[in-house]
């Protein structure tokens, strides 16, 4: 009964679900990706670190880092959108469900990145849009930028295989 629940509790449940999803992906921590959440809207934040540099002479972010950042943002955004109703209803409450019992993440089928300009050695941001999420397949578009959202440095499009909703506790 989300309607009668204090908003604070709902927000805590949303944050806990997001944190639990991220906790299941050690690679997110290695890259230093965080998420800003406003309601259902997520913005990926890639904190700059020297180890993310590909070309030390420019210097520029490694293309693989940019690609991974967009892929991580796509997967987490898609996963939150996929689970949203069940988080809202309280059926998924990461505080009471051990992380290993959280639903599986979508699996990447293919991922295509356009490198528009070189990533500068500073923080980067990304947002993903779920173009379509069917029962089995989803199509997600994403964009990454640094200082100015109107000047993206990379954009991507990917297809994902959705975990069956019934698999929630299958591990």
């Amino acid at each position: 009964m989300a309607n009668s629940e204090p908003m604070q509790l709902v927000e805590q449940r949303r944050d806990a679900a997001l944190a639990a999803l991220m906790q299941g992906v050690p690679y997110i921590r290695f890259l230093g990706i965080e998420f800003d959440r406003h309601g259902a809207e997520l913005t990926g934040v890639l904190r700059f670190d020297d180890k993310l540099i590909g070309n030390p002479f420019l210097p520029a972010l490694h293309g693989g880092v940019t690609s991974a950042f967009l892929e991580v943002t796509s997967i987490i955004t898609l996963s939150m959108a996929h689970l949203w109703e069940r988080i809202e209803s309280g059926e998924i409450d990461a505080k009471s469900v051990p992380p290993e019992n959280l639903p599986n993440l979508p699996k990447t089928i293919d991922f295509t990145v356009d490198y528009l300009r070189s990533g500068r050695p500073r923080d980067a941001y990304a947002r993903a849009t779920v173009a379509r999420a069917g029962r089995r397949y989803a199509s997600v578009q994403s964009t990454a930028w640094q200082d100015n959202q109107d000047k993206p440095f990379a954009q991507a499009s990917g297809h994902f295989l959705m975990p069956a909703l019934g698999d929630a506790h299958d591990g």
Binding site: G24, V25, Y27, F30, G63, S67, A68, E71, V72
Partner: peptide
């Protein structure tokens, strides 16, 4: 570089890098 703690499978992003 693991993408899924449950399985220990590496993340696609690392493969892409």
């Amino acid at each position: 570089i693991v993408g899924d703690l449950k399985t220990g499978v590496i993340h696609g992003g690392a493969v892409s890098a």
